[in-house]
Each structure stands twice: as structure tokens, then as C-alpha cells.
Simulated assay, not measured.
Amino acid sequence: MKITRTVKKILDNYESDCPGTKANLARILMHGRLGGSGKMVILPVDQGFEHGPARSFAPNPDAYDPHYHYQLAIDAGLNAYAAPLGPLEAGADTFAGAIPTILKVNSANSLSTNKDQAVTASVMDALRLGCSAIGFTIYPGSEDQYEMMEEIREMSEEAKSVGLAVVMWSYPRGGKLDKA
């Protein structure tokens, strides 16, 4: 894979990361319609886990099939597809090498009033599935924010030690935050 100057410049900022991590980040940055531009669009699909499949997918029944989301990301020319363990496992063999994948290693659900996420997958799961990265969500402002920060620090260290990139989603929640 030939790397553009723009992507090379981005990778130069990751000098402390191992070559495997930089290679996986390059794989994501060089893939899809925005490949090489230094910009990326990732399709994250965890709504079926977070909100339940019917609430998320009933308006579009094709979305119940995990292969649908892989194909959607590929057809849209996106840089990567991110999902929890089950949906990635369901299409990992069929879509191996077709699009970089990101294993979302923690998840919540809408039944809980607690603003926290449970770790539902591992770095080893990401390696087994051929993922380019792990993804993790934190909620700054929640009562569990420090625990979440510690979890991603540990998982990030493990992921980078085996050459995986790390993506973090961060949404302010709970605590003294209000919707305004």
C-alpha cells in the first residue's frame, strides 16, 4: 500500500507507537473514498446492543442481518466499520480484508439508569477477527468516568502492544451535566 504525504504526516505524530499500530492506522486512513486524504468516516453500529434490535432495526428489517452493515460500509466507501463482538464475528469470514474493522470492546444498554459501559470484548477477540483497531466509549461527567478512563488506559496499552490502533468515542453524560 502506497501511503500519501498527508497520511505519512499524520503517522509521524505517532512516533511512540509500534510499527504494527501505525500500519493499522494507515490501513484505515488509506481505505475507502477518503483514503489518503487524512480524513475518515467510520460506520459505528452498536444500536442493536445499546437500544435493542427492534428499536434500532425494525424500520429497516434488512439491518437485522449483520452482513448488511458490512456491505453498507463497503458500498459507501467508508474507511472502517465498527461494531460489538457478535456482529463482527457474524461477518468476519465473509468480509475478511474487504474493509478495516474496529471491535467496539465496551457497550451499554438503554435498560440501565447507570451511565457506564461494560467491557464485552477483548484485545484477543480483535486480533482473532483481524481487526485494525479496538474502539471504546467513555462518558466524561458520569459517576463512572474514572473507572472508564482506567479501563481504556489498560486496554489501549494491551492493544498497542500487539499492533492494534485505538479509537475512542467520548460523550459527556450524567453527573452535574444538563442537556443545555
Rank of each mutant, 00 (worst) to 15 (best):
M1Y: 09
K2D: 14
K2S: 14
K2G: 15
K2R: 15
T4H: 07
T6N: 10
T6H: 05
V7L: 00
K9D: 15
I10N: 06
I10C: 02
L11F: 08
D12P: 02
N13M: 12
N13T: 15
N13F: 09
S16Q: 13
P19Y: 13
T21Q: 06
T21F: 02
K22H: 04
A23H: 10
N24P: 09
L25W: 10
L25P: 08
A26S: 11
A26P: 08
R27N: 07
L29Q: 02
L29Y: 11
M30A: 10
H31L: 00
H31K: 10
R33H: 12
L34D: 05
G36E: 02
G38N: 04
K39C: 11
K39L: 13
V45M: 10
Q47Y: 13
S56Y: 01
F57R: 04
F57K: 03
D62R: 10
D62T: 07
P66Y: 03
Y68H: 05
Y68K: 06
Y70E: 03
A73M: 00
I74F: 00
I74K: 09
I74Q: 02
D75Q: 12
D75H: 06
A76K: 09
A76L: 14
A76V: 09
L78I: 09
N79C: 12
N79E: 01
P84G: 12
L88W: 00
A90W: 01
G91K: 03
G91R: 00
D93V: 11
A98P: 14
I99E: 02
I102A: 05
K104M: 13
N106A: 10
S107R: 03
S107N: 13
S110V: 10
N114E: 15
K115H: 02
D116Y: 12
Q117M: 14
A121Y: 08
V123Y: 07
M124Q: 15
L127P: 03
L127K: 13
G130T: 06
G130M: 01
C131E: 01
A133I: 05
I134W: 00
G135T: 08
Y139F: 13
E143V: 08
E143Y: 07
E143M: 10
E143K: 07
E143C: 12
D144G: 01
Q145V: 09
Y146S: 14
M148A: 06
M149T: 09
I152S: 08
I152V: 15
M155K: 06
S156M: 13
S156P: 09
E158V: 06
K160T: 05
K160L: 07
V162A: 08
G163L: 03
G163S: 05
V167A: 06
W169Y: 14
S170V: 08
P172T: 13
P172C: 01
G174V: 13
G175Y: 03
L177R: 12
K179R: 07
A180K: 11
A180Y: 14
